[in-house]
Design a binder for these strands. Sequence first.
DNA 1: CTAAATCATTGACATTCTCAATGATCGGAT
DNA 2: ATCCGATCATTGAGAATGTCAATGATTTAG
Lengths: 152, 152
Amino acid sequence: MSAEDIEGGVPRLAQAAIAGDIGLLLAKLRAAGSVVNNKALAEFGLRERSYSVLRLACSGLEPTQRELADFLSLDPSQIVTLVDELESRGLVSREQGRTDRRQKTVLATPDGERLHEKAEAAVLECEREQLAALTDTEAATLRKLLRKALWT
Amino acid sequence: MSAEDIEGGVPRLAQAAIAGDIGLLLAKLRAAGSVVNNKALAEFGLRERSYSVLRLACSGLEPTQRELADFLSLDPSQIVTLVDELESRGLVSREQGRTDRRQKTVLATPDGERLHEKAEAAVLECEREQLAALTDTEAATLRKLLRKALWT
DNA sequence: CTAAATCATTGACATTCTCAATGATCGGAT
DNA sequence: ATCCGATCATTGAGAATGTCAATGATTTAG
């Protein structure tokens, strides 16, 4: 975020060996994306986290809280807090699990769906900006490789 | 980290639209890498953060603290804490900036160099495991695309 | 039918993030 | 030369996040 990083400038330290570390590259790109996303989501009273939960609640997959925790790499207790907040705003509701009464599935309300639709547009626009340096095929390749590394 | 994610299993929620969001993919891969890295670095009394600082201090580029903050996407105050800790362990030293007396350059001591060498090997091994699902060329492509998205 | 495991939840604690304020120093404009 | 605004490292405070252990309700395995 300094002058060096703003636009097309390669920081001096990018010469270092660490600049090839996947961990650092992921962290940097993610950090940059996070601030942009949170800025864009503020308008809807959401943060990256709550947006992700809302988004999955809108997916039609009827995720349980445990599934949300695993999928979002969060502790189950963090999901409780996030769902509490979304539920209190009437964006989401907890339903009894179909087959297992221990679990609760998280579903979006009509209000939640509407809000998600707008927030989604904003986030996708952020994503487009973040990957502006890549061609469409490059962006697709990046997505494909990340998914492969995660889920193969 | 649940049963679904352990080995080669694609979680049910990966069908959702959100599974294509770059932000989520980055966050997930990074989260997974972080726990592995921190586990491997514990043996050396380092965490991901302090390792990164030590690594840059060993680069020969004589980074200033401001540069470290920008490059690692951290607040300058966090760098102070990290350098304090490394310095108190004798792994790193602060030197007066050559041209600007406001800035301080962070350099590794011989002890720091030695520790970094061992830690580096451990982290590179973690990285290899994390990208095990990718071929060598795919891993190289991933690195290239991440760098391009960041620094173009 | 019992014992172990799993789910959501609560609460405590540590780590990390984000900001504002400070004194020292620098750079540029007069 | 001197003032003025900007930048550097540092400190400190408060919010957000991460991590872990314990709980009651329920399911699954034996």
